[in-house]
Design a protein around this nucleic acid. Sequence first.
DNA 1: TATTGTTATACTCTATAACTATA
DNA 2: TATAGTTATAGAGTATAACAATA
Lengths: 169, 169
Amino acid sequence: MITTVRRRARATAGPTARGDGAGATVGLGMLAELIGYHVRLAQMAVFADFERALGALSLSPGLFGLLVIVEANPGLRQTQLADAARLDRSTLVPALDKLESRDLVERRAAPDDRRSNGLFLTAQGATLLAQAKRAVRAHEKRIAAELGEGDRATLIELLDRLAPGGRRP
Amino acid sequence: MITTVRRRARATAGPTARGDGAGATVGLGMLAELIGYHVRLAQMAVFADFERALGALSLSPGLFGLLVIVEANPGLRQTQLADAARLDRSTLVPALDKLESRDLVERRAAPDDRRSNGLFLTAQGATLLAQAKRAVRAHEKRIAAELGEGDRATLIELLDRLAPGGRRP
DNA sequence: TATTGTTATACTCTATAACTATA
DNA sequence: TATAGTTATAGAGTATAACAATA
């Protein structure tokens, strides 16, 4: 299957189309030819919009991601969540502390293995997450508006080629 | 102009093609549908390869970027460099301290404005940067190998649509 | 008054190593 | 011995606010 890429429709508004800014006269050398450079800029822009969308709920992209994974996998163990979120299990601890202190997530002692905790969304957590997901869908729509549905799929496909499925080599 | 995207040629090696890993059974909920999620994974993969390529020279992507910009703009002022690199000028100070302590960059008092410093690569800085650029080109070739030249250009074009030219709104 | 570089400080994200309580 | 969660600690990376020197 072949996917086509639609070019932007000639400047959304007006001056917005210019690709420079404060440092217009400063050359970037080979930087602008590096995929990593463009990925980083895109990441900054996308995350900034995400924070703008979710700031009111005091949820960072990372915390939001944890809530989503816990919701999708009730009873998940901390180590499993850490793996899924690509965090060290020690990194997960303060994040869960934060979510638990806000009564969004609950650590329940696992019945079968007393070393483990099962993770669950609280009622409050489920409510907040529902709100957050609405905000995130709006955010996604906003940034995807620059692309259109076809190009969005293409972009994701190309990005996934850079990150080999998420395996740890 | 229409750009076509070539799909990957049926698994480079073998098991590498599988898209899961340790947390195979853990669902990600809506996460996998978010552009930001894929951008983040790509960013992590690309930066990890960059660090692997440049680690021997003890250059992070950030420091490498600063050297490249200084090389392309000899005599640049700190504030200008900060703008070009999208850093606060206070953030730039310790970075330049690091580069200067390693004798890679020099702050020269500007003749016309005694508040300002002009930034220059030292001879050592130029030598190291030349090495680094070779390593970065190899790195770029490596990650672009997953794409091919056409898809590489497409990816960059799509990413740039997410980051509005780099302007600060 | 405004700008340049600097300092002091703090916050986020992340990791490694070692500890504890289980298994 | 090995694993799950935790703690202590540290290191990037980044920012804001305030300051001295200079414009």
